[in-house]
Simulated assay, not measured.
Amino acid sequence: MKQKSITIYDIAREANVSSATVSRVIAGNYPVSEKTKKKVFDLIEKYDYQPNAVARSLTKKESKMIGVILPDITNPFFAQVFIEAEKYALTKGYTLILCNSMNSSELESRHLRVLSERQVEGIIFMGGRINKTHPEVSEINELKYVIEKIPVILVNGRMETLECPSISTNEAKGIELIIDHLVKQGHTKIGLIGGMTGITTTDIKVEAFRQNLEKHKLAVVDSWQIYSGYDVKRGKEAMEEMLEVNKHNLPTAIIGINDLVVIGALKLCHQKKINNFSFVGFDDSELTQNSIPEITSVSHPYNELGEKAVDMLIKSKTTDSKAENLFIDPHLVVRESTI
């Protein structure tokens, strides 16, 4: 026979006190006599009573839930940051709620509304509108409205008009590490493929790419920098364009805006039986170690991004200090594709 669930009213009845008194004992922030406390706690232990989490959250104004909005959970970067944040949040007693916007601004808006209505204690936001060079005014205002109600932490993105904490990888430093490495390997003709103009992470990498070529007094050839997108298919297309447009003057090393783009470029070269390029990715996802050849790639500080995002959110609940914007340097993991 199934045992009846013990309620706060059962505890109150057996302790011969009101349910409000039991609530006060559990909350621990109201004066209750030591004798009554002991009686209530003894019964809680006797019946292994677990206070309802929702009711407790209403009393304490704490849900211990953090919303995470990201554009594409299949993208290795977003997935890895989420995993690191979730592992760390659990050690702090928090649960993460994943909201995948599928690269839709409308879905982002819906997630923002639902999360703020469901009393999460804050939101960690990645990708989407915070990576647009020129976001819509409505997108800015919508996020601003949410920030006035609950803390929001931005990961690898910014909205210049918002006073909002953020944490980012220093992606310009990542490109610098790549080009320094390629130059040491003897490359003087370097190309860049993937990404989209108007997306801040791409714009940062493209600008750093050109600046670092100039720093090393290397040629900046417009046709060696090709926008295409962020997935394997777009990588294949970009590499095909690179080969077609630069038939008589190809670079010897290719940088991908991320690892997926490099995988696509490698697939095309394999199909065409071309193996005279060095390739470097960005993100250091698991794909880099399972590719042939294994891919040299810039590694984000995933642990720090996830953990500090959670810490910043928890801190922002209790402080009105000026929003901080942290930048963390990545490192380069050298593998077969550039050796």
Rank of each mutant, 00 (worst) to 15 (best):
R129F: 02
F277A: 09
I8P: 02
F125H: 10
V220C: 10
I199L: 13
Y145T: 15
M126G: 03
S5T: 05
I26D: 00
E160L: 10
N29Q: 06
I190V: 07
S104R: 10
E176F: 08
Q80C: 06
F327M: 13
M65D: 01
T169H: 09
K61S: 14
V262H: 02
I83S: 14
R129T: 14
L107Y: 10
K189T: 03
M312S: 03
D72H: 11
I314R: 02
Q3E: 10
K64I: 00
I73E: 03
I255K: 04
D42P: 01
F282E: 08
K144N: 15
I11D: 09
T200E: 03
I124S: 00
N29R: 04
Q185M: 12
G198R: 04
C269K: 04
L305I: 06
D311P: 04
V220Q: 03
L162E: 10
N275L: 12
T200C: 03
S104C: 08
V25I: 02
K173C: 13
N325E: 13
D180L: 02
G306S: 02
T200S: 14
A15W: 03
I140E: 03
L250I: 09
V68G: 00
V333K: 05
V334S: 00
I339T: 05
E336H: 05
L266N: 11
I6D: 06
T95S: 14
T338D: 00
S105P: 12
S299Y: 07
I274E: 04
T59A: 15
K267D: 15
P330L: 01
R335L: 01
Y230A: 03
T288L: 10
H187A: 09
D10H: 11
T74G: 07
K217C: 12
V68K: 01
T296I: 07
I328P: 03
A253T: 02
K87H: 12
K233I: 15
V280E: 04
L112Y: 13
A265N: 07
K189G: 01
E237A: 15
E108T: 10
G235A: 08
N156L: 04
Q225I: 13
M196P: 00
V81L: 11
K39T: 14
N100V: 06
M159V: 14
Q211T: 15
S337E: 00
E136L: 13
S104M: 07
V206A: 13
A85P: 02
M159I: 15
